[in-house]
Simulated assay, not measured.
Amino acid sequence: MPIDWAHAGATLLASFLASLVECVEALTVVLAVGVTRGWRSAVTGSALAVLVLLLIVALLGSALTRVPLGDIQLLVGALLLLFGMRWLRKAILRAAGVLALHDEASIYARQTQALQGSVVATQGWDRLAFTTAFKICMLEGLEVVFIVIAISAGRPGLWLPASAGAVAALLVVIVLGAVVHRPLARVPENTLKFVVGVLLCAFGTFWVGEGIGDAWPGGDVAILALILAYLVAAMFAVRGCRRAAIRGASA
């Protein structure tokens, strides 16, 4: 099936950025587990979670090929729109100063302190380390799986760029984690979530329109217009929330 290059670039970017955010969050906990409890169980738990996620992707991807394309577009479009709005809402409130920014260094410190309070296994497997690493990788990985499947299911040929974006993000985080051995606190996570939220909302709106049979003006170029529209709306929302927060603080 030929790749639709009009969508491939935006699909790759959305998949990469969204996966990067989730992988960084998972890395923070895995690093805390490895440093505090030992790397054997931490790496094993993480690797098993990745294998389970790959199996889920294979099963869901196979199942989606049996569903009519219009139904898939409507379903994943609605889900992407809801998912993107959730990310965008938090990013707007954090950018406006209403919510505190996500602090990976603080999360790492809290996780390390909590793990240090338990007895470390001197022989065999460390059940706590294995379970903690497996759970965080599964939780964050499931969001990556959803995004990859959702943004690639709306149009034939997008599976490759969506998967490539997720794999690239995973490899980047693994390499950086292996090199620095510390949480990637300097990654501008809220900015990434802001951008990803805009992209997911744009994709979701586009797929919903395609799913109900409406033809977008300009065809695929409408995605760029939707991205710009959501970006402008989100920036105005940040300004509005910031002004409301200042008025509330001064009242």
Rank of each mutant, 00 (worst) to 15 (best):
G84T: 10
V172C: 06
L200T: 15
M235T: 13
H181T: 10
V232S: 13
F194N: 13
A185P: 12
T36V: 15
P217T: 12
L93S: 12
I107W: 04
C137I: 00
V195G: 10
Y108F: 15
M138D: 03
I151S: 11
D4I: 06
Q123K: 14
L224A: 15
L17W: 10
L160D: 09
W5L: 12
L80I: 10
H181K: 04
G197R: 03
F83D: 13
L171N: 09
W207P: 11
I56N: 03
R155M: 14
A164S: 08
K90G: 12
L80A: 08
A185W: 08
V43Y: 12
F134L: 15
A164C: 11
S41G: 07
C201F: 07
I147E: 00
F146S: 09
L13W: 02
G117E: 11
T122V: 12
A47P: 06
Y230P: 08
I92R: 06
I72M: 07
A26R: 00
V29K: 00
V52L: 07
E22Q: 12
A105Y: 03
P217R: 00
W125Y: 12
V144G: 11
W216T: 13
T28I: 02
E140N: 11
G209V: 07
A114D: 05
L82Q: 04
P188Q: 07
D103K: 05
S152I: 09
T131C: 04
A225S: 12
L82T: 14
A244E: 09
L31E: 15
L192I: 15
A42E: 00
R40Y: 04
L59I: 13
A91V: 10
G248D: 13
A185S: 14
A42P: 04
P188D: 11
G117W: 02
L20G: 07
V52T: 08
S46L: 05
P161L: 02
G154A: 06
A96K: 00
S41F: 07
A162L: 07
L31D: 15
V24Y: 03
G219Y: 07
G124N: 09
L60W: 05
I147S: 05
E189Q: 09
L64K: 01
A114G: 05
G45Y: 02
R186N: 10
L93D: 10
A237Q: 03
A215S: 14
V221M: 06
L17E: 06
G211H: 06
R94W: 10
V180D: 09
I107L: 06
